[in-house]
Design a protein around this nucleic acid. Structure first.
Length: 799
DNA sequence: ATTATGACTTAGGAGAATTGAA
DNA sequence: TTCAATTCTCCTAAGTCATAAT
């Protein structure tokens, strides 16, 4: 988002008067760059990059460079003696923070005790009935009054706080975010995936069937399930998989013959998996019902917790099942075996007064803590990268909602000071101090192009970068001020873009690339996200690099929404909304893979559109012949239909013949089948022949040019009726066209990510109110739930 | 000062569920 | 009703950033 955007007639009351960014114009050089950014043509979209490096476009040298071989640029000018060449000893600090590990409580002693409710310490209202004992779900009724829900919910007049009423409108109190995250917390722990059930099917090795130990078989089955996916043909994936697979073979099976991946044939197992899948498809209604019910029961139990006495939804209560690690892009560890998580590895976080959930029979929890400074309910370490996995509350929960709102408020705060900040970094672009100049340049990129901060990554991860970790090879310059970016960002999504930048920025980039730096050296060698962020803190409390992304996304969105037609159908308004959304998605480089059905679908839409136009044409022609004077009043009926050529009409009509024949045959078969079942005489073949003959005649007349099309209205319809029908068709044409345009523009752009994470929902709510568009057209259920806190704003609210 | 860890947000893809066209 | 296409949900990887450990 550029500076010019900010003055571009934005009605935002919030904007601060002066535009330092323009001030930069004065300094010369700033201008050109800023202007282009407001309407980034969609064509700049970058493409997803296949598994290898991006290819530095210009000299192309590096694109096939092995990850590991990459020379990491010396951060901080190689700070004295190349001390500790990275890999520092892993350590195992533990000792979870506050309180103490609660009574470890063996499975035996805990037995069947769902959260009993003597929950709260001091609260008198803790009326939990003993009845809870037998329940399998967390009680709906809050055990305690949320003490914080003060005024807002003040209608909390106890008696009937049961349902709707007790909805906790936390966003109406302005609570600060410091201090503990909760005071009481009860939950049922986590759900473990089912044990592996061996199928006993063999691996085929060099043509020989090999029955495997269950633990080996399980892993073989993981691979079999991926046959047909990109993973299965990825060399790194295969190698990593095979290493772990082989290790298990060696461990569990004496003298097995397996030596190389290439000779392994998993197809028998795969066939079995396909079989299971097919079987599942043919489940009866009753079976489906039963499965659904079971799922619901589980969700009812593990899916909720009691947080400060309120029932809240839990997000991912399932422990991740074992499988093959599917690292994205060129991840060095992709394909490795992600091992099964045992209860002994899981830490439970729960209120000190709550009943500790039972671990699965015969097991115990690794640890139980009562840490109310964090929001997670459970935690474990995953074996691939030694990362911590958490069980958090769902997106719609109050905890998540609160931090979400805080995030957007912070971004909104930036609206007020962004002009000053831009002025500051524009000035710093010319700083004598290298570190400052780099910082300013990086900040410019973050602000203009919504780049991520770009933390350093290890050699055991995919080589992706963000702003601070850009290497010289990722940026190529072209005088006088064109920059070409090409690098892999988060999730190995390629960022590719050619654009004009501020002249000083361009000069700086050239300076930062100067010899003796190599292509693989860091562009910003005097900068790290830490230093950048601590500088940002001095400009605005809580400001970090990522706030710019949120700010710019929401700001651009709000600005783009101004293109909503004031008069227009709902569809047109929604199109404008989605376009604004798309603009943001493009800015943030949110991509998705083109669905395989895309081309076909587009053709179909095109055909549908022409078919409707053809219908409309027939009616118009008819009207012109029976009431030629009408065209004075309705000039549109004299207008030609675009695209409906004689050639198209013919092929269309012929195609209908084919379709109709097919239909007739199908119907014939179906009818006869029914009759057969009912033991009644079937319709003779001749009947079908008759119908087909009719169609053939039609086909012939089409070919002759003697065919007289049927009108899509009754023969004796009045002109008014016909006009009415024409108007209906016109509306359909409009809708199809809108749909077509939108779809094409949407091909590779993912709108959801920005909608979920970057665009302040209050902008959308206000827009809906202003334009009379039902919110459901914009936000699905999950979004409405996630953004409850945003629903109250009025139509004039601005970001 | 630097690195490691911890906690939390952001991300795209797979598969399930729903919707729409025939 | 049936099938295909679209949308939604779930899943979990991959980021950011603050803070603890060294």
């Amino acid at each position: 988002m550029s500076s010019t955007d900010s003055d571009g007639g934005i009605p935002l009351s919030v904007r601060v008067a002066s535009l330092p960014s323009n001030g930069k114009n004065g300094g010369g050089g700033g201008d050109g760059s800023s202007s282009d950014s407001d309407n980034v043509p969609l064509s700049i979209r970058s493409k997803r990059q296949p598994a290898s490096a991006p290819g530095g476009s210009d000299s192309g040298t590096e694109s096939d460079q092995p990850l590991s071989g990459r020379v990491k640029a010396p951060r901080k000018k190689a700070v004295a003696n190349g001390s500790a060449p990275t890999p520092a000893p892993k350590r195992t600090k533990k000792a979870l923070t506050p309180k103490e590990t609660k009574r470890p409580r063996t499975a035996a002693s805990a037995t069947a005790a769902p959260p009993k409710k003597p929950t709260v310490k001091s609260e008198p209202k803790a009326t939990k009935p003993a009845a809870t004992k037998a329940k399998t779900q967390i009680d709906r009724k809050p055990a305690i009054k949320a003490e914080s829900s003060v005024a807002a919910t003040s209608a909390d007049d106890s008696d009937d706080s049961d349902n709707e009423n007790d909805e906790f409108k936390w966003w109406l109190n302005n609570k600060d975010n410091t201090g503990p995250k909760w005071s009481t917390l009860e939950h049922f722990g986590v759900m473990f995936p089912p044990e592996y059930e061996p199928h006993g099917l063999p691996l085929v090795y060099r043509g020989q069937k090999l029955k495997m130990h269950p633990l080996v078989e399980e892993v073989a089955t993981f691979f079999a399930a991926l046959i047909g996916s990109d993973n299965a043909v990825n060399k790194v994936f295969q190698e990593n998989f095979f290493n772990d697979f082989k290790e298990l073979l060696d461990k569990h099976m004496e003298k097995h013959p397996v030596k190389t991946f290439e000779h392994c044939d998993f197809s028998i197992i795969r066939a079995h998996l396909d079989d299971i899948k097919a079987k599942r498809k043919t489940m009866t209604k009753a079976e489906k019902e039963a499965a659904k019910k079971e799922k619901l029961e589980i969700e009812e139990k593990y899916g909720f917790c009691m947080l400060d006495g309120r029932r809240e939804k839990v997000g991912n209560f399932r422990i991740e099942p074992p499988g093959l690690f599917r690292g994205r892009g060129a991840h060095p560890k992709t394909g490795m075996l992600k091992t099964r998580v045992l209860p002994e590895q899981v830490t439970i976080n729960i209120g000190s007064d709550a009943t500790i959930p039972d671990p699965p029979p015969g097991h115990s929890w690794g640890k139980v803590v009562n840490d109310n400074t964090v929001t997670w309910l459970a935690m474990w370490k995953e074996n691939i990268n030694n990362n911590t996995k958490y069980v958090f509350l769902a997106a719609g929960s109050s905890l998540k909602g609160q931090s979400d709102m805080r995030k957007f408020d912070k971004a909104r705060n930036l609206v007020k000071c962004v002009d000053d900040i831009r002025a500051q970094y524009t000035k710093d672009l010319k700083s004598e101090v290298m570190a400052e100049r780099q910082r300013a340049t990086a900040l410019y990129l973050i602000d203009r192009f919504a780049l991520r901060a770009g933390n350093e990554k290890g050699d055991d991860e995919a080589d992706t970068v963000g702003c601070c970790s850009l290497r010289c090879e990722h940026v190529s310059l072209e005088p006088p001020s064109i920059v070409h970016f090409d690098f892999l960002g988060k999730d190995s999504i390629r960022y590719e873009r050619t654009t004009d930048v501020d002249k000083q920025v361009w000069k700086n980039l050239r300076l930062f690339q100067k010899a003796p730096k190599a292509k693989s050296d860091m562009l910003f060698d005097r900068l790290s996200p830490t230093t950048l962020n601590s500088f940002l803190h001095t400009l605005m409390p809580g400001l970090t690099a990522k706030v710019f992304r949120t700010f710019n996304a929401s700001f651009v969105f709000q600005k783009q929404l101004l293109n909503t037609p004031e008069v227009g159908t709902e569809a047109e308004k929604i199109l404008a909304y989605n376009r604004a959304n798309r603009e943001v998605a493009v800015l943030c480089n949110h991509q998705r893979s083109v669905s395989k059905s895309f081309e076909g679908v587009m053709t179909k839409i095109e055909d549908k559109l022409l078919a409707v136009r053809y219908q409309r044409m027939l009616l118009k022609d008819h009207l012109m012949s029976i009431a030629p004077t009408l065209k004075k009043k309705r000039p549109d009926i004299a207008q030609k239909e675009v695209g409906v050529t004689a050639k198209w009409i013919k092929s269309y009509l012929l195609a209908t013949c084919e379709v109709d024949r097919e239909k007739a045959r199908k119907k014939f078969e179906r009818d006869n089948e029914k009759l057969k079942e009912a033991d009644e005489p079937v319709i003779p073949e001749s009947k079908l022949e008759e119908q087909l003959e009719e169609i053939n005649a039609r086909e012939k007349s089409i070919n002759d040019g003697t065919y007289e099309p049927e009108l899509p209205v009754a023969k004796n319809a009045t002109t008014d009726k016909i006009l009415e029908k024409i108007d209906k068709l016109t509306e359909r044409v409009g809708n199809i066209e809108v749909n077509k345009i939108e779809r094409d523009e949407n091909k590779t752009t993912a709108l959801s990510t920005s909608k979920i994470n970057y665009i302040d929902p209050r902008i959308s709510v206000a827009w809906c109110k202003k334009n009379n568009v039902p919110l459901e057209k914009i936000f699905n259920r999950a979004l409405r739930e996630k953004f409850t806190w945003a629903m109250d704003v009025d139509s004039e609210w601005t970001f």
